[in-house]
Design a protein around this nucleic acid. Structure first.
Lengths: 251, 251
DNA sequence: CGACCGCTTGATCATAATCAAATTTTGTGG
DNA sequence: CCACAAAATTTGATTATGATCAAGCGGTCG
């Protein structure tokens, strides 16, 4: 299974990763990220509490399950996976995080991170100290509301995953993941039909409750049906309607 | 499979369902519910925004997917299930809600309920208008923080369910659900070893991603192994350690 | 160059789904 | 309170989906 993809409409995605003058006001992600609903003055206040780190290398941890909870994080560039370790030492991938998305909110309830977060490629994040965010939220109703919305959205999306795992076949799960990644790319003005999967087949299988072999077979089958073209991690969706039909869900 | 259970250490659970003088201060659930972290004065303020309804009959909806989101709800007595309807018309049960637990938070993100909620038996709820709660949260940092914690807890619990669905066998899933219900009963000072399941086998299967038949078989198997005694909806856990071993998870 | 890793493909097996039917429980009306 | 219908649950037989076991391929890195 190696259909060479010509060139990849790829993330030339370093939204100022190395530019320390970046701030929320001029970040190209601000329309999908935390500042979403804020007025310009309010964004400046938010900006003051945010800490921008230097990029993390592939495979580095942002935090680990059990670590003291101090902050939530917004992905600035790259991709991360969140995962829990089960009692018998296995791993469960609970989510993938793309630029503009917020992770770490599951640490609030116990004041300790409930999962680990690891980069899948070189990535940069904005650290948002939760104590400061809470304080600011009390002052800015828009911010408070938006953060409530973000948490609620996480709940809603987890419920969609629950449904997927509970009711859908291997084909449907894989197709749904492709559509999810596609729409998240499109949201960031990247190609929704031609992209590079930042995660391994193992991670995909783990996330979807399937084995690597099954994931691989589904990709092969979809390629044979001319729904997608697969070249290693490069994916081209050739027949969006077909993939939607296979997913059998509204994504 | 009919091992008659002598008498049921049951919920004589009407924490003042019909007593309209009830308020958060004197509610016996206040130590596990929303007022958890509040000072007495603050509880009174919270109390003012809460609306107590008359009991809902079995099978009634508290809200439906798509309804305008106005409020979250605390269960006062009885049990509810939350469920989503998939595109092809099937149902996915996303959670069961016992007294002291909060539901409806998934409606915040889109300002419309993302799932439906239906009573499994006669139940009473406290309605908490979200606009008022938000406003009050800005004034009471403890309340804001506690509500953030509640949402975070929902996320954490959903992730546990995701892991269960993704990695665990039918036996493990059913055993884990029994332990979950057991511990939630214990939290309310009810028996953790002898209780009545408020939901049907269909609902259990639906929630756990299994068919009714499989759920029934697992119950039978557990009974044959003298881990539990089953009499219709009455469950007695005879061998807690055994059930824990079968669940193969820390609940 | 060779070892390793990630991915793919094939063959076989096991778990839970599906199909089918009996049995119990529940609800309703007389 | 009983009779009957409808719904829920249990049990059995068979099947299908995806897991497991096994092997090979291709690329990368020391």
């Amino acid at each position: 299974m190696t259909a060479k993809l010509s060139s990849s409409a790829q993330e030339e995605f370093k939204p100022c990763s190395h530019d320390y003058r970046v701030n929320c006001s001029n970040c190209r992600l601000n329309s999908i990220c935390l500042p979403l609903t804020l007025e310009s003055d309010d964004i400046d206040q938010l900006d003051k509490i945010i800490q921008r780190s230097k990029p993390l290398q592939k495979g580095q941890h942002l935090y680990r399950e059990g670590d003291d909870f101090q902050s939530v994080y917004a992905v600035r560039s790259g991709t991360l996976k969140a995962y829990k370790t089960t009692d018998d030492g296995r791993e469960q991938v609970t989510g993938f995080y793309f630029p503009g998305e917020i992770l770490g909110m599951d640490g609030i309830s116990k004041n300790a991170h409930a999962s680990s977060a690891k980069t899948l490629e070189t990535s940069a994040v904005c650290e948002i100290p939760f104590a400061s965010l809470s304080k600011l939220s009390s002052l800015l109703p828009n911010l408070q509301h938006h953060f409530f919305q973000l948490m609620s959205q996480r709940i809603t999306e987890d419920q969609i995953l629950i449904t997927l795992l509970s009711k859908n076949s291997a084909d449907e799960r894989v197709a749904a993941l492709l559509l999810s990644i596609s729409s998240r790319n499109a949201r960031r003005k990247l190609s929704g039909t031609h992209f590079r999967l930042p995660m391994s087949r193992v991670d995909i299988g783990n996330y979807l409750g399937l084995t690597v072999e099954t994931v691989s077979r589904v990709f092969s089958r979809m390629q044979k049906m001319d729904m997608i073209r697969v070249d290693n991690k490069e994916i081209e969706i050739l027949d969006v309607a077909g993939v939607r039909t296979m997913a059998n869900i509204a994504v």
